[in-house]
Design a protein around this nucleic acid. Structure first.
Lengths: 221, 221
DNA sequence: GTCTATAAGCAGATAGAC
DNA sequence: GTCTATCTGCTTATAGAC
């Protein structure tokens, strides 16, 4: 009853992560999954649709990770978790970040969808900064308009680091294979972007949690 | 005597910028240049080679722009010029930044080459920061090891912003066409990354020059 | 629900005429 | 130096058997 649908989505994601989106045709997917190309097209009307279904998971995980559990204010644990979630997604869907432009150019609906996610995310990140200010754990310069400008800048830079980290590491490690641990520096780099404005105690606590989480992840993967 | 060689390199760059690398096959190149596919293969042994020749220009322009004219110290003019050069390249070779990973995955020699450029560039950027410190126009926190860490961080963030800006703007402007003016915000975003550590007078002067240069560029293009 | 077989199209690249 | 014509190999996707 379940059929191969789930297996295909998950297998395609894995394969594209390993070999890159453009190197992963429907034939190779079917081959790697040990099913026939025909079977693949029974479950999905096109390759595009497979990518779209994978993207939906990326999007859902990301939105959830950015929104959940900030109602009672942001603890150092919660703050560190933002970065953990972010780099987890960048790793789990690295094929997408590596081929963003081509994937979006090939599918208008996907492009619109990602455009909305980007806009939404920049807002959400700004709100997180604002929330940290409100609860006194972040202090931005109060000069006229400066705080608002800086909030936007932190949000945008965090986003840009997030989307580019995979490309950067792939260049750096051209010959050897990427491992999950390569993401850790990216998380720290994103964290560092914000840390100058954080309350010292809060910053210390959050960094400690982030570092131990990253080590834990590395040990598992 | 000159033949079509130059015309092909320049035409391929233009076409790939407009339609994206993966959408620009050798057939389409020949068509757009109004020459035959055969002629194209007389001048270049493969599509890869065309891309490699284009990349060489990107690389040369970039290295030159990052190194030239710092012997007598860095003036606000020279400092602003770094960003002008950087975004000029990001614009002129935007096809490369948009499809980096796929292009490098398809050509090992190119991947190695770009890997060296990335490493070299991070060093060069660090040196620029150090130079600004030495001449007293940048002030980084002196706490043990902090300055070195921050120099590296500024260099890396600047690089990451540079390589990701095009992807970001392409998502934002999904339906309409990109224009050169879309790059201006990227330059400012990169500049902002460094500005908190700059001497106030120097920062003001450099920002003013940067802004007027960006306006000038926009008016021309 | 899964298979085999294959169509249709486009890519990169080459041979050989002019 | 440039052309026409063409080959090979790949891709996405479909038709129809089981």
């Amino acid at each position: 009853m379940a059929g191969n649908r789930e297996k295909i989505i998950e297998g395609a994601r894995r394969l594209m992560n390993r070999e890159g989106s453009s190197a992963t045709g429907t034939t190779r997917m079917a081959e790697a999954l040990e099913i026939s190309p025909g079977n693949l097209y029974y479950h999905f009307k096109s390759r595009e649709e497979i990518v779209a279904r994978i993207y939906e998971r990326l999007e859902a995980t990301f939105r959830e990770g950015l929104v959940a559990g900030t109602g009672d204010g942001i603890t150092p644990e919660r703050f560190a978790d933002f970065y953990i979630v972010a780099i987890g997604i960048a790793w789990d869907y690295r094929f997408f970040f590596a081929s963003q432009t081509d994937l979006l150019a090939a599918d208008d609906a996907l492009a619109r969808r990602h455009r909305e996610l980007q806009a939404w995310s920049l807002n959400a990140l700004e709100e997180i900064v604002a929330l940290l200010e409100k609860q006194g754990t972040a202090l931005l310069p109060k000069a006229r308009g400066e705080a608002a400008r800086l909030r936007k800048s932190i949000a945008l830079n965090t986003w840009l680091l997030w989307i580019s980290w995979i490309s950067f590491v792939k260049v750096e490690k051209a010959e050897s294979d990427l491992v999950r641990g390569d993401m850790a520096r990216g998380a720290v780099q994103m964290f560092d972007l914000f840390s100058p404005w954080l309350d010292t105690e809060f910053e210390k606590a959050a960094r400690k949690i982030l570092n131990s989480e990253l080590e834990r992840m590395d040990a598992v993967a």
